[in-house]
Every structure is written in C-alpha cells, then in structure tokens.
Amino acid sequence: MRNIGKWGLGAGLTAGWAVAFAAAPERVPWQLNMHPGVTQSSHDAYDLHMLALWICVGIGLIVFGAMFYAMFAFRKSKGAVPATWSHNTIAETIWTVVPILLLVAMAWPATKVLINEAYTNESQMTVKITGYQWKWGYDYVNWGDKAYHVHFISRLDEKSDRTRQLRSGLNPGDVKDAQGENTYLIDVDKPLVLPTNTKVRFVVTGDDVIHSWWVPALGWKSDAIPGIINDTWTNISEPGIYRGQCAELCGQDHGFMPIVVKAVPPEDFKKWLDEQEAAQNPPAPAAAPVAQQGVPSMPSNG
C-alpha cells in the first residue's frame, strides 16, 4: 500500500510543524497555519485541526490522483476507447464505508474535547466579560471564595487608534510594543490580567449588539449576546501576552475592539487584584464568600 508512506510523511510533517510553531510568536508574516496556543483547549483545537487537515489532504491526494490519472490515461487524443460500464458495487461500497470511518475518526476526538470544554465547574475564579460598541468591559467577580468588585473598560490603544483613521498618513508598521512586535489594532489601553495555572471561568455577555470574545491562544471564542450569558473557561499554562479581536460583526468599529490577555503567575495576580480592589473600592467592602453570594454552579456550558 502506497498510502502508508503518505501517512507517515503526513505524521512527520505534522510533528515538525507543531514543533516549529510552538516557539514562534503568534502572528507572523506569511504565516500558514494555526498557532497551537497556550491552553489545553487550544492544543486540542490545534490537534483536531491537524488531524482533519491531514485526513482531507489524504483523501484529496487519492481522489485528485485518480482523476488526473484518468485525464492522462484515458484521453481521446491518445485513442482511448470508452468503456460502457456504469456500476461497480464493490467500489461504491468502499467509498461509502471508508469516508464513514474517517468521519468517525474525526468526530470521536472532537466529541471528547467538546465534552471537556463544556465542563465549566470547579473553576477557581470568575470574570465577567461584556462587549460594548466598541470596547470590552471586565468585572472580576471572585477569586477563590472571595468576592471582588474590580471593573474596568479595555479599548483600542491610542496609537493604533490614531493610525487607523481614514488616510491618517501614519504607518501601521510603526505601531510596535517594547519587544518590537507589531501591535497595530491588537493592543489595548488596559489588558485583562489573568493568573496562570488557574481554571478561570468567564461569563460573557453583550451590552448593545452581539460581539464575540476571541483570543486564539486560548483556543475558543464565545459570543457576547445582549441579555444572555455564555460561560466558558480557560487555564493558561504560560505567562505571556495573548492577543485577540472581536469576532462578530458589531458595527462600524468591529475591527477596532481588540482583546489583550496578560497572563501572570498566581502570586503576582493576587497582588495585582488586591491592589485594584483597594483602589476601586476604598472602604473595603465586606467580602462575602462567593458561596453565599451564590454564583450558581452549573453542570454545563450555557
């Protein structure tokens, strides 16, 4: 079977690709593939993506290979005489059954991953995300069993905003962060700070129209729908800055409401959060335990 070799090649390429991209920054010029990200969900999505990709490439090679072979071998100009058959039960059975098996091979891991992602319980903290035209609002609801009342708005950084005006004359290439990475349209004034190695639950909603909160490195997006709460979770493995954008058309500045997550070790996060709490709520409100506050626990993704 010639296919074995092809699959081997595919697997090799997959592995190579995964290694090559793991260390690379998230967005690079001429980028070809998805970034594996920094959470279990993003790795799962990436693996599923590669699995499906290679299955499709495999099918494609066989189907198009057969077709191109036919186009060369059975051309009239080479004197091909047409056959008259138009049935072949064995072949028809094979090409019904094999795709079914391949679909199962994709659906199976997809189901497992999905069930895992739907499980939002046992989170260690909760952040409420609200989409506005055209900025994001963040509320830290609790950490551990302590309730917080930290709220802020996060919007497009000022430099991108000036550059993106119609015919501003400014060069998008000049909008860079300290490391020299281009941050045009993917930087904000105040990032969402999150702890690493912590299961963080997000409750996501919209204020005016539907938005969608998406940081590719976390591996999912969740629509922010007015009047409805969606909940999801993440658990970031590495400290770093992760950038994303609103992913649902929300009006004229849909392209200009980025998301930045700054993941820091839990200790640093605790310090940061307490500072914010103190600054925003000077008389230090009675910190009712969350259990009493009654953040309901839910069996699955709403």
Binding site: V28, L32, H35, N182, C246
Partner: peptide, 17 residues
Amino acid sequence: FLGLAGMPRRIPDYNVA
C-alpha cells in the same frame, strides 16, 4: 492561511502580520 493565523472576517483593516 489568514484565517488560521487569526484574521477575523468583516474587518476593513488589520494587523501588519
């Protein structure tokens, strides 16, 4: 490629990458 690299649809402007 653009989609996989993270470019959302329905935007008039985008990052330099």
